[in-house]
Design a protein around this nucleic acid. Structure first.
Lengths: 143, 143
DNA sequence: TTGCTTGCAAATGATTTGCACTGCT
DNA sequence: AGCAGTGCAAATCATTTGCAAGCAA
Protein backbone atom coordinates (compact mmCIF):
# COMPACT_ATOMS: atom_id res chain seq x y z
CA UNK A 1 0.00 0.00 0.00
CA UNK A 2 1.51 3.28 -1.06
CA UNK A 3 1.83 6.35 1.06
CA UNK A 4 -0.99 8.01 -0.84
CA UNK A 5 -3.37 5.18 -0.09
CA UNK A 6 -2.37 5.23 3.54
CA UNK A 7 -3.19 8.92 3.78
CA UNK A 8 -6.51 8.50 2.06
CA UNK A 9 -7.40 5.58 4.27
CA UNK A 10 -6.60 7.62 7.32
CA UNK A 11 -8.77 10.54 6.28
CA UNK A 12 -11.68 8.31 5.45
CA UNK A 13 -11.43 6.47 8.77
CA UNK A 14 -11.39 9.83 10.52
CA UNK A 15 -14.85 10.34 9.08
CA UNK A 16 -16.05 6.78 9.71
CA UNK A 17 -15.91 5.90 6.07
CA UNK A 18 -14.38 2.82 4.51
CA UNK A 19 -11.68 2.81 1.89
CA UNK A 20 -13.45 0.46 -0.48
CA UNK A 21 -12.26 -1.00 -3.74
CA UNK A 22 -14.33 1.52 -5.72
CA UNK A 23 -12.82 4.41 -3.87
CA UNK A 24 -9.36 3.03 -4.32
CA UNK A 25 -9.99 2.81 -8.06
CA UNK A 26 -11.02 6.44 -8.15
CA UNK A 27 -7.96 7.57 -6.22
CA UNK A 28 -5.73 5.51 -8.49
CA UNK A 29 -7.32 6.96 -11.58
CA UNK A 30 -6.90 10.50 -10.29
CA UNK A 31 -3.30 9.86 -9.26
CA UNK A 32 -2.48 8.33 -12.63
CA UNK A 33 -3.61 11.38 -14.55
CA UNK A 34 -1.40 14.41 -14.81
CA UNK A 35 -4.20 16.92 -14.44
CA UNK A 36 -7.86 17.16 -13.42
CA UNK A 37 -10.27 14.78 -15.15
CA UNK A 38 -13.96 14.77 -15.92
CA UNK A 39 -16.32 12.05 -14.83
CA UNK A 40 -16.48 10.37 -18.25
CA UNK A 41 -12.68 10.23 -18.34
CA UNK A 42 -12.62 8.82 -14.86
CA UNK A 43 -15.13 6.13 -15.76
CA UNK A 44 -13.04 5.20 -18.76
CA UNK A 45 -10.12 4.55 -16.41
CA UNK A 46 -12.25 2.42 -14.12
CA UNK A 47 -14.89 0.80 -16.31
CA UNK A 48 -16.34 -1.38 -13.60
CA UNK A 49 -17.59 1.64 -11.65
CA UNK A 50 -21.21 2.68 -11.89
CA UNK A 51 -21.66 6.32 -12.73
CA UNK A 52 -23.80 7.06 -9.72
CA UNK A 53 -21.31 5.40 -7.40
CA UNK A 54 -18.52 7.43 -8.93
CA UNK A 55 -20.41 10.65 -8.24
CA UNK A 56 -21.29 9.50 -4.75
CA UNK A 57 -17.77 8.45 -3.91
CA UNK A 58 -16.26 11.60 -5.33
CA UNK A 59 -18.47 13.61 -3.08
CA UNK A 60 -17.46 11.52 -0.05
CA UNK A 61 -13.82 11.93 -1.00
CA UNK A 62 -14.33 15.64 -1.45
CA UNK A 63 -15.85 16.04 1.99
CA UNK A 64 -12.96 14.12 3.47
CA UNK A 65 -10.55 16.59 1.87
CA UNK A 66 -9.08 14.01 -0.49
CA UNK A 67 -10.52 15.23 -3.75
CA UNK A 68 -11.11 18.70 -5.12
CA UNK A 69 -13.86 19.49 -7.53
CA UNK A 70 -13.31 22.18 -10.17
CA UNK A 71 -16.00 23.91 -12.15
CA UNK A 72 -14.97 26.03 -15.10
CA UNK A 73 -18.09 26.41 -17.17
CA UNK A 74 -17.58 23.39 -19.38
CA UNK A 75 -20.25 20.70 -19.44
CA UNK A 76 -18.57 18.51 -16.86
CA UNK A 77 -16.88 19.30 -13.60
CA UNK A 78 -13.24 18.28 -13.18
CA UNK A 79 -11.84 16.29 -10.30
CA UNK A 80 -8.30 16.09 -8.92
CA UNK A 81 -6.56 15.00 -5.74
CA UNK A 82 -6.48 17.67 -3.04
CA UNK A 83 -3.50 20.01 -3.03
CA UNK A 84 -2.10 18.75 0.25
CA UNK A 85 -1.68 15.36 -1.39
CA UNK A 86 -0.15 16.60 -4.62
CA UNK A 87 1.21 20.11 -4.00
CA UNK A 88 -0.07 23.62 -4.57
CA UNK A 89 -0.71 24.43 -8.21
CA UNK A 90 -2.99 26.33 -10.57
CA UNK A 91 -4.80 25.74 -13.84
CA UNK A 92 -4.60 26.61 -17.51
CA UNK A 93 -8.08 26.30 -18.95
CA UNK A 94 -8.60 26.02 -22.69
CA UNK A 95 -11.63 28.00 -23.77
CA UNK A 96 -12.07 25.96 -26.92
CA UNK A 97 -11.69 22.31 -25.93
CA UNK A 98 -12.25 22.73 -22.21
CA UNK A 99 -9.12 20.84 -21.20
CA UNK A 100 -7.42 21.75 -17.93
CA UNK A 101 -3.70 21.60 -17.31
CA UNK A 102 -1.72 22.15 -14.10
CA UNK A 103 1.03 24.69 -13.56
CA UNK A 104 2.96 26.11 -10.63
CA UNK A 105 4.27 29.57 -9.85
CA UNK A 106 7.61 30.39 -8.32
CA UNK A 107 7.78 30.65 -4.53
CA UNK A 108 8.51 34.37 -4.72
CA UNK A 109 5.34 35.17 -6.63
CA UNK A 110 3.22 32.89 -4.49
CA UNK A 111 4.51 34.54 -1.40
CA UNK A 112 3.86 38.10 -2.50
CA UNK A 113 0.42 37.00 -3.56
CA UNK A 114 -0.22 35.37 -0.20
CA UNK A 115 0.74 38.53 1.59
CA UNK A 116 -1.51 40.68 -0.55
CA UNK A 117 -4.36 38.25 0.00
CA UNK A 118 -3.80 38.19 3.75
CA UNK A 119 -4.08 41.94 3.99
CA UNK A 120 -7.12 42.08 1.84
CA UNK A 121 -9.00 39.33 3.49
CA UNK A 122 -8.35 40.74 6.92
CA UNK A 123 -9.79 44.07 5.84
CA UNK A 124 -12.93 42.41 4.51
CA UNK A 125 -13.50 40.04 7.42
CA UNK A 126 -13.35 37.12 5.05
CA UNK A 127 -11.96 33.79 6.35
CA UNK A 128 -9.84 32.55 3.46
CA UNK A 129 -9.29 28.82 3.11
CA UNK A 130 -7.45 28.62 -0.20
CA UNK A 131 -6.95 30.44 -3.44
CA UNK A 132 -6.93 29.44 -7.08
CA UNK A 133 -5.50 31.08 -10.16
CA UNK A 134 -7.00 30.17 -13.49
CA UNK A 135 -5.55 31.26 -16.79
CA UNK A 136 -8.04 31.15 -19.64
CA UNK A 137 -7.03 31.01 -23.27
CA UNK A 138 -6.24 28.48 -25.99
CA UNK A 139 -4.12 25.43 -25.31
CA UNK A 140 -1.26 24.46 -27.60
CA UNK A 141 -3.46 22.03 -29.51
CA UNK A 142 -6.27 24.52 -30.10
CA UNK A 143 -4.34 27.65 -31.06
CA UNK B 1 -27.51 57.74 -22.65
CA UNK B 2 -24.53 57.03 -20.45
CA UNK B 3 -21.08 56.12 -21.61
CA UNK B 4 -21.62 52.51 -20.60
CA UNK B 5 -24.70 52.20 -22.73
CA UNK B 6 -22.90 53.78 -25.62
CA UNK B 7 -20.11 51.23 -25.41
CA UNK B 8 -22.53 48.35 -25.16
CA UNK B 9 -24.51 49.62 -28.09
CA UNK B 10 -21.35 49.87 -30.13
CA UNK B 11 -20.26 46.32 -29.39
CA UNK B 12 -23.65 44.92 -30.17
CA UNK B 13 -23.87 46.81 -33.46
CA UNK B 14 -20.43 45.47 -34.36
CA UNK B 15 -22.01 42.03 -34.21
CA UNK B 16 -25.24 43.03 -35.95
CA UNK B 17 -27.23 42.82 -32.78
CA UNK B 18 -29.69 45.37 -31.45
CA UNK B 19 -29.51 47.04 -28.08
CA UNK B 20 -33.07 46.29 -27.08
CA UNK B 21 -34.96 47.31 -23.99
CA UNK B 22 -34.47 43.86 -22.44
CA UNK B 23 -30.76 43.99 -22.97
CA UNK B 24 -30.58 47.46 -21.55
CA UNK B 25 -32.41 46.26 -18.46
CA UNK B 26 -29.88 43.48 -18.02
CA UNK B 27 -26.93 45.84 -18.39
CA UNK B 28 -28.51 48.27 -15.95
CA UNK B 29 -29.11 45.52 -13.42
CA UNK B 30 -25.53 44.30 -13.71
CA UNK B 31 -24.15 47.83 -13.44
CA UNK B 32 -26.30 48.59 -10.40
CA UNK B 33 -24.96 45.62 -8.45
CA UNK B 34 -21.60 45.83 -6.77
CA UNK B 35 -20.61 42.27 -7.62
CA UNK B 36 -21.62 39.35 -9.82
CA UNK B 37 -25.24 38.24 -9.65
CA UNK B 38 -27.13 35.04 -10.32
CA UNK B 39 -29.97 34.76 -12.75
CA UNK B 40 -32.69 34.78 -10.07
CA UNK B 41 -31.20 37.96 -8.62
CA UNK B 42 -31.06 39.48 -12.05
CA UNK B 43 -34.69 38.64 -12.73
CA UNK B 44 -35.66 40.19 -9.42
CA UNK B 45 -34.08 43.45 -10.62
CA UNK B 46 -35.92 43.28 -13.92
CA UNK B 47 -39.20 41.50 -13.23
CA UNK B 48 -40.63 42.00 -16.68
CA UNK B 49 -37.96 39.83 -18.27
CA UNK B 50 -38.74 36.24 -19.17
CA UNK B 51 -36.24 33.78 -17.80
CA UNK B 52 -35.43 32.28 -21.18
CA UNK B 53 -34.88 35.70 -22.70
CA UNK B 54 -32.58 36.62 -19.87
CA UNK B 55 -30.48 33.52 -20.52
CA UNK B 56 -30.52 34.14 -24.24
CA UNK B 57 -29.57 37.78 -23.93
CA UNK B 58 -26.84 37.08 -21.42
CA UNK B 59 -25.31 34.68 -23.87
CA UNK B 60 -25.50 37.26 -26.66
CA UNK B 61 -23.93 39.84 -24.37
CA UNK B 62 -21.25 37.38 -23.38
CA UNK B 63 -20.33 36.66 -26.98
CA UNK B 64 -20.13 40.38 -27.65
CA UNK B 65 -17.64 40.72 -24.79
CA UNK B 66 -20.00 42.77 -22.65
CA UNK B 67 -20.81 40.24 -19.97
CA UNK B 68 -18.70 37.65 -18.23
CA UNK B 69 -20.11 34.44 -16.88
CA UNK B 70 -18.62 32.92 -13.73
CA UNK B 71 -19.08 29.37 -12.54
CA UNK B 72 -17.98 28.48 -9.05
CA UNK B 73 -19.76 25.27 -8.24
CA UNK B 74 -22.86 26.80 -6.68
CA UNK B 75 -26.24 26.02 -8.20
CA UNK B 76 -26.36 29.09 -10.38
CA UNK B 77 -23.78 30.76 -12.55
CA UNK B 78 -22.91 34.38 -11.79
CA UNK B 79 -22.90 37.21 -14.31
CA UNK B 80 -21.04 40.51 -14.29
CA UNK B 81 -20.02 43.21 -16.76
CA UNK B 82 -16.78 42.45 -18.60
CA UNK B 83 -13.59 43.68 -17.02
CA UNK B 84 -12.81 46.20 -19.74
CA UNK B 85 -16.04 47.98 -18.81
CA UNK B 86 -15.53 47.89 -15.06
CA UNK B 87 -11.83 47.31 -14.39
CA UNK B 88 -9.69 44.29 -13.59
CA UNK B 89 -10.64 42.55 -10.35
CA UNK B 90 -10.92 39.16 -8.68
CA UNK B 91 -13.40 37.28 -6.50
CA UNK B 92 -13.97 36.20 -2.92
CA UNK B 93 -16.23 33.18 -2.99
CA UNK B 94 -18.07 32.09 0.14
CA UNK B 95 -18.15 28.31 0.40
CA UNK B 96 -21.18 28.34 2.65
CA UNK B 97 -23.65 30.79 1.13
CA UNK B 98 -22.17 30.90 -2.35
CA UNK B 99 -22.01 34.69 -2.50
CA UNK B 100 -19.32 36.32 -4.63
CA UNK B 101 -17.61 39.62 -3.84
CA UNK B 102 -15.13 41.64 -5.90
CA UNK B 103 -11.68 42.70 -4.82
CA UNK B 104 -8.59 44.19 -6.44
CA UNK B 105 -4.89 43.63 -5.91
CA UNK B 106 -2.20 46.29 -5.89
CA UNK B 107 -0.51 47.11 -9.18
CA UNK B 108 2.79 45.71 -7.95
CA UNK B 109 1.39 42.28 -7.21
CA UNK B 110 -0.60 42.17 -10.43
CA UNK B 111 2.47 43.05 -12.39
CA UNK B 112 4.70 40.41 -10.87
CA UNK B 113 1.94 37.91 -11.43
CA UNK B 114 1.58 38.97 -15.05
CA UNK B 115 5.26 38.51 -15.63
CA UNK B 116 5.27 35.06 -14.07
CA UNK B 117 2.28 34.09 -16.15
CA UNK B 118 3.86 35.40 -19.35
CA UNK B 119 6.93 33.25 -18.84
CA UNK B 120 4.95 30.21 -18.01
CA UNK B 121 2.50 30.45 -20.79
CA UNK B 122 5.22 30.99 -23.34
CA UNK B 123 6.94 27.83 -22.18
CA UNK B 124 3.74 25.81 -22.52
CA UNK B 125 2.62 27.20 -25.87
CA UNK B 126 -0.62 28.35 -24.29
CA UNK B 127 -2.28 31.50 -25.66
CA UNK B 128 -3.48 33.28 -22.53
CA UNK B 129 -6.44 35.62 -22.82
CA UNK B 130 -7.06 36.52 -19.20
CA UNK B 131 -6.56 35.30 -15.68
CA UNK B 132 -8.73 35.06 -12.61
CA UNK B 133 -7.92 34.71 -8.94
CA UNK B 134 -10.56 33.22 -6.70
CA UNK B 135 -10.26 33.14 -2.94
CA UNK B 136 -12.47 30.54 -1.32
CA UNK B 137 -13.51 30.66 2.31
CA UNK B 138 -16.26 32.04 4.51
CA UNK B 139 -17.62 35.53 4.04
CA UNK B 140 -18.06 37.91 6.97
CA UNK B 141 -21.72 36.95 7.35
CA UNK B 142 -21.07 33.20 7.38
CA UNK B 143 -18.03 32.96 9.64
C1' DT C 1 -27.22 -8.31 12.72
C1' DT C 2 -26.29 -3.40 11.65
C1' DG C 3 -25.29 -0.13 8.75
C1' DC C 4 -22.16 1.52 5.02
C1' DT C 5 -21.86 0.65 -0.19
C1' DT C 6 -23.38 -0.31 -4.59
C1' DG C 7 -26.05 -0.36 -9.04
C1' DC C 8 -30.10 0.51 -11.32
C1' DA C 9 -33.70 3.38 -12.54
C1' DA C 10 -36.10 7.51 -11.75
C1' DA C 11 -36.04 12.39 -10.24
C1' DT C 12 -34.10 17.06 -10.05
C1' DG C 13 -33.10 21.47 -11.65
C1' DA C 14 -30.31 24.90 -14.17
C1' DT C 15 -29.96 25.99 -18.75
C1' DT C 16 -31.26 25.47 -23.68
C1' DT C 17 -34.29 25.11 -27.49
C1' DG C 18 -38.66 24.87 -30.74
C1' DC C 19 -42.12 27.54 -32.20
C1' DA C 20 -45.41 31.02 -32.96
C1' DC C 21 -45.87 35.92 -32.25
C1' DT C 22 -44.36 40.77 -31.83
C1' DG C 23 -41.90 44.66 -33.33
C1' DC C 24 -37.81 46.99 -35.49
C1' DT C 25 -35.93 48.77 -39.85
C1' DA D 1 -41.90 42.30 -46.12
C1' DG D 2 -38.16 40.26 -43.70
C1' DC D 3 -35.76 39.07 -40.01
C1' DA D 4 -34.12 39.75 -35.05
C1' DG D 5 -36.18 39.38 -30.35
C1' DT D 6 -39.48 37.59 -27.08
C1' DG D 7 -42.27 34.44 -24.12
C1' DC D 8 -44.11 30.10 -23.24
C1' DA D 9 -43.75 25.36 -22.81
C1' DA D 10 -41.09 21.41 -23.64
C1' DA D 11 -36.53 19.22 -24.01
C1' DT D 12 -31.70 18.43 -22.45
C1' DC D 13 -28.33 16.62 -19.69
C1' DA D 14 -25.05 16.58 -15.71
C1' DT D 15 -25.76 15.37 -11.30
C1' DT D 16 -28.54 13.58 -7.35
C1' DT D 17 -31.49 10.45 -5.03
C1' DG D 18 -34.74 6.28 -3.70
C1' DC D 19 -34.58 1.75 -3.10
C1' DA D 20 -33.42 -3.10 -2.81
C1' DA D 21 -29.52 -6.06 -2.60
C1' DG D 22 -24.40 -6.94 -1.28
C1' DC D 23 -20.85 -6.86 1.91
C1' DA D 24 -17.69 -5.65 5.87
C1' DA D 25 -17.37 -5.21 10.99
Amino acid sequence: MTDLHRQVDERLRARDQRYTESRRQIVDALAANSGPVTLPTLLASAPSLAQSSAYRNLSVLEEAGIVRRLVHGADHAFYELAEDLTGHHHHLVCERCGSVQDFTLGARVEQSLDEAIDDLVRAKGFAARHHAIDIFGLCADCS
